[in-house]
């Protein structure tokens, strides 16, 4: 009996975990969390322009500056989506040939929308880390405030460069 139990128990657990009925934990994934507002503030800045098209053009320039390829744009919805694949190591290590063989796929999504007297821009990042054979090791939403602060510092510069047509 002990043998049967040891064989069946993990299989039953596997079946249960793969069953579609496990949506209980998923309910929360489509609910607003307590951190939603805080996250939105971190990811959003207002720019003093009513020209949404120009802000989007500046954002496309910045997304390219950051080495992303543009995957999808929808100007009428204020949307830019891009991605890039890089080593998981710092570029200094990669240049020295000491980088990790694992790679990360980083996705960026920029969304603009008009607000009274200005335009708001929200950016979000996601990262998937894979081993050299493409097996996914981890995936995460990037919530490091430093990343967003740096992005918006560069965005301000991009808006200036766009205005100067550089």
């Amino acid at each position: 009996m002990g043998v049967i139990r040891s064989v069946l128990a993990p299989l039953v657990l596997m079946c249960l975990s793969a069953a579609p009925g496990c949506a209980g934990g998923l309910n929360n994934e489509l609910s607003l969390s307590a951190e939603s507002l805080q996250q939105r503030q971190l990811q959003t800045r207002k720019f003093e322009t009513r020209d949404e098209g120009r802000l989007l053009t500046a954002a496309v320039g910045l997304v390219q500056d950051l080495g992303f390829s543009i995957d999808n744009t929808q100007p009428r919805l204020g949307l830019i989506v891009g991605s890039k694949e890089r080593s998981t190591s710092s570029s200094a290590l990669v240049k020295l040939g000491l980088g990790s063989e694992n790679r990360q796929r980083i996705r960026i999504c920029v969304v603009t929308h008009p607000v009274p007297g200005a335009c708001a821009l929200r950016v979000t990042f996601q990262r998937v880390v894979m081993d050299p054979t493409g097996v996914v090791l981890s995936q995460e939403f990037i919530d490091d405030p430093k990343v967003y602060e740096e992005f918006f510092a560069k965005m301000s510069k991009a808006v200036f460069l766009e205005a100067q047509q550089i």
């Binding site: 934990g25 609910s31 969390s33 939105r40 919805l77 996705r107 999504c109 969304v111 995460e140």
Partner: peptide
């Protein structure tokens, strides 16, 4: 975006938006 999704694509003509969320679930 508030729910933590990154938008993959959108099409105003057809009226579609698709996004992916990576957390404890994909």
């Amino acid at each position: 975006q508030d729910l933590g999704f990154v938008i993959d694509s959108a099409d105003e003509g057809l009226g579609t938006v698709t996004g992916t969320k990576v957390s404890s679930h994909m």
